[in-house]
Amino acid sequence: MPKIHIPTPLRQYAGKQPAIEVEASTIGEALSGLVAQHPDLRRHLYTDDGKLRAFVNVYLNDEDIRYLQKDATPVKASDSISIVPSIAGGRFDFRL
């Protein structure tokens, strides 16, 4: 089964597990399966209207799913899926 790697801040909503295996043939099925197993993850991954949050990146092995087939991207049992919240910032003050 494909393995989904959970980033450290979200493990508290995923039974404290660093990785979770789900039965899936696409990325969309894998993420749905993950959220079905761990419903507390939903609000951290998705907006109220069901879209993946803008700062949540999903990688299939080393590829961003946005540049593959998004939710329809096929996955194999040996694949590794990573959920990676973005890391950015800087001294720039957007309020100026």
Partner: peptide
């Protein structure tokens, strides 16, 4: 610039507990 977080740092921080 000072070693203090900026509004941008907070807005773009998403790794809770880190």
């Amino acid at each position: 610039h000072p070693a203090q977080w900026s509004p941008t740092d907070l807005a773009e921080a998403h790794w809770f507990g880190c």
